[in-house]
């Protein structure tokens, strides 16, 4: 069983600058990583004999809403800032857990897919793509999962999202 600091040090030895920092939050400490290297880091965490993170418990997208926010009337737009993805994983053998985070610019949100490392990530990434518009590179089947395939009003969980008036002639607001 390894602590977050030990895991951070192991990753730092192997991936140098792609591992940015260990943030000791009030709840779970998390390791900030490079979004384009997260697939390699994940594969390492899964296959390293001392780590064996075989269970991706959760993968969630977050709108950090840390850019410039401008409000005109009822419409809010956010420019700049980041969208993040959090990875919660555990090892069923060693019973240790770790949280990774990647941040990617709001204008071009891209992260490497880990769907081929843990198959459970497949639909989680589709969800983050559907609701936040994060583009997971090399995902086998990156389609919307909850919203209709032809939904053009944007990504509902972004903080500057506005619901459309109509969808295929059906009124959307209450």
């Amino acid at each position: 069983m390894k602590s977050a600091e030990e895991i951070f040090n192991i990753l730092k030895e192997n991936f140098n600058d792609n591992i940015k920092e260990l943030v000791k939050q009030p709840v779970d400490p998390y390791i900030l990583c490079d979004p384009l290297k997260i697939n390699e880091i994940s594969l390492f965490l899964l296959s390293n004999e001392g780590l064996l993170f075989d269970n991706l418990m959760n993968l969630s997208g977050v709108d950090d809403a840390n850019g410039m926010s401008t409000t005109t009337g009822s419409i809010t737009t956010i420019e700049g800032g980041t969208l993040s993805v959090y990875y919660h994983m555990e090892s069923t053998k060693f019973r240790h857990k770790v949280v990774l985070r990647v941040s990617t610019p709001r204008e071009k949100p891209e992260a490497s897919s880990v769907a081929l490392v843990w198959r459970s990530a497949d639909w989680h990434e589709r969800e983050a793509f559907d609701l936040l518009g994060i583009n997971f590179l090399n995902h086998p089947d990156l389609r919307r999962i909850l919203m209709p395939y032809d939904w053009e009003a944007g990504y509902p969980l972004r903080k500057d999202y506005a619901n459309p008036e109509f969808y295929h002639g059906m009124k959307v607001p209450y």
């Binding site: 909850l146 919203m147 509902p156 999202y161 619901n163 059906m170 009124k171 959307v172 607001p173 209450y174």
Partner: peptide, 19 residues
């Protein structure tokens, strides 16, 4: 009428009598 999703349910039709 949309039930608990009436306000924030971005994916929910607010009542099937609309279709």
């Amino acid at each position: 009428c949309g039930g608990p999703y009436w306000e924030h349910g971005y994916h929910v039709l607010k009542g099937v009598d609309r279709v």
